[in-house]
Design a protein around this nucleic acid. Structure first.
Lengths: 228, 228
DNA sequence: ATTTCTCTTCACAAAATCTTTACACTATAC
DNA sequence: GTATAGTGTAAAGATTTTGTGAAGAGAAAT
């Protein structure tokens, strides 16, 4: 459900906060709220949200000033939501470092699209997260696993099993748990499947499948992955 | 006087072009003009401007399509200028890769501020509009693909599928994802389409379609393009 | 109206994967 | 040492997934 992005809403109007809470959370964003400038700056600093929605009409301070203060150290996108629609106000906000400016009342889908655009621009520079250990490299985005720079060919089930173990690095997973996760609840007793697939995985990733280094057997319990 | 940034204006209305020429040049931008989609794409490729102002109501082609074609290879900011102000149109443009959307008539100072904002966040890193690998050459501007210097004749669907795979070089794309991208959400379960079109593509670009080198099958998951 | 091109659908062949079986191996308990 | 429960592995068979040619439907071009 979550898309991994957090958004801080700085707005004193309860209706707007409620509306944003419903629409943004429905789209997978994690929301934070502040009802005035002081609280907003504190929360931005303590939570480092991925994006800030800032109302310019705050009770305790001029929004343009808040914007400038945030921009002294806050690098992620800031989108202004304001009832003021004068050109002067918009130009000033954009030149103070705002990424976009929407006038209230705003259209929900447009706001969502502009949030996506702002997030796209600031986070696409980052590399794909790649996990590496020993001679093995795992790229979850590309769904590619390499052993000694050779692309490893895994079937869908093998890949699922491997990533399940990997995600629980160091932990013992019971046979039952693994079977339920990979094959579904009905297969919880088919421990033989597991043995077959574990053997195949070991053949592919272990240097010496007879003396496994990564996929360890916990006799009578299950398996444990050990990346280092 | 010059600020070093070049802007390509793609708009068929002479009044708009004149207005932009005066205001933008007065602010130090170097201007380029195109009066239709074809010319616009060509000029974008040949001059690699720092920013594009694109009108959606072009005479020869739908602006949303032009936007998508530009985004195949052009990475600098694109700001839409359009008389259309429906939420649907705006969302579509932003999700197709536009950085901002202004409805005509626009306010000059606001446009300037939004141009500054867009340029502020970009790193001018446009990719070459022509890419090559193995015996294959892809020209995103003219939309021509060559294999061993022979022009390859691809249908619209084949071209879309091919470039989708190409843009995700190395990544595994699921059947569902590809179907949704190419045929639309309603076709997410028509994996048979995909098989037919993948077979046709392979017949056209692979040296030995029985042992594909570029379009690889990930059984049970999807397909993966591999350019090298 | 006819031809050409593309897309969609079907049927079946081919390949890959999963499941099952059989049996060997290992560790622990007694 | 032997029994026993648990584990590992190869391989055959079953099933699913994928590849491919071809026929029919529609749309566009001639």
């Amino acid at each position: 459900m979550s898309n991994g992005f957090s958004i801080l809403v700085i707005d004193d109007e309860i209706q707007i906060r409620k509306l944003l809470e419903i629409t943004l959370e429905a789209n997978g964003y994690k929301l934070l709220f502040a009802i005035n400038a002081k609280e907003g700056i504190t929360m931005a600093a303590s939570h480092q949200p991925d994006l800030i929605l800032l109302d310019l009409g705050l009770p305790d301070q001029d929004g343009q000033v808040v914007l400038k203060q945030l921009r002294d150290w806050y690098q992620n996108p800031i989108i202004i939501l304001s009832v003021k629609s004068t050109e002067e106000e918009i130009v000033k906000a954009l030149d103070s470092g705002a990424n976009d400016y929407l006038t209230k009342p705003f259209r929900t889908q447009e706001l969502l699209a502009r949030i996506r655009t702002a997030l796209r621009g600031s986070f696409n520079q980052s590399q794909e997260p790649i996990i590496a250990f020993g001679a093995i490299t795992v790229d979850f985005v590309s769904r590619i696993i390499k052993v000694k720079d050779e692309v490893l060919k895994l079937t869908a089930t093998e890949y699922n099993l491997f990533t399940l173990l990997l995600k629980n690095d160091g932990r013992v997973l019971t046979h039952q748990y693994i079977l339920k996760e990979i094959w579904g609840n009905a297969y919880a007793e088919q421990t033989q499947y597991l043995r077959v697939f574990v053997a195949q995985l070991r053949k592919k990733i272990e240097e010496d499948p007879n003396r496994p280094k990564y996929i360890l057997t916990e006799s009578g319990v299950g398996y444990r992955f050990n990346s280092g």
